[in-house]
Design a protein around this nucleic acid. Structure first.
Lengths: 109, 109
DNA sequence: GGTAGACGTTAGTTGACACTTACGTTAGTA
DNA sequence: TACTAACGTAAGTGTCAACTAACGTCTACC
């Protein structure tokens, strides 16, 4: 969970994710897409993404092909959804308490 | 967008968000919840969260009350949803291309 | 007006991390 | 085997952010 958020917190890694979102790409092609960063730097980003479960790696000769793994974002998505759900639950509880109060506004919206 | 992700990338800030998710709390009460960090540090976190649109601030005398603002997470949610949607679109396009190929596998799943 | 309480802000320090350069590793090829 | 291509890895460097200590700012209350 922490690894996932830290991984996508870096703009460069989000850009990499977009590159391999639809197409499988070798590390070299990914690195060639950036003209202001070296290949080893991209390699390190790919490692971070892989350890966070956000990309899958496949060997093909001397090349390593990467593709996005959207399931890896499931944890983050659940965090967001859960945040919203529990927020709604809290508001609902407060509304019920309000409703039970003598002279409560009753019907409200 | 970048501000939102950086804000929730810090574990301490996520904990603060959970604290004010259902209840409105003054800064002092939030700081008192942590025994390994000083009050100014919490104050700085609250500023970061506020600038990212994740919490709302309300004055009450000398106190400042904070509450979560789930709408602030909408941008991040859209990012995740969009990521999934475009991924599915890409897979669908590939499937169509496969289908048009002479001798293509046709209806496959 | 003076005092106290509840905060935010500033200056300075320290640890983490993104980056580069240099090197190591593996697979294809003559 | 020797050579090359496509990578990952290690060591070192600079920058940024989370933290603390000290200070400044409001508001309530006497």
């Amino acid at each position: 969970m922490q690894a996932i958020i830290e991984a996508i917190a870096e703009p460069r890694r989000r850009e990499i994710l977009r590159l391999v979102r639809a197409t499988e790409l070798p590390a070299g092609a990914i690195a060639a897409h950036f003209d202001d960063v070296t290949r080893p730097a991209v390699s390190q980003h790919l490692r971070t993404l892989r350890e966070a479960g956000l990309v899958a790696e496949r060997r093909d000769g001397t090349r390593r092909l990467y593709r996005a793994r959207p399931e890896g974002l499931a944890g983050l998505r659940e965090f967001l959804d859960g945040f919203w759900d529990e927020r709604l639950d809290a508001l609902r509880r407060e509304a019920e308490i309000e409703e039970r109060r003598p002279g409560g506004r009753g019907g409200g919206n």
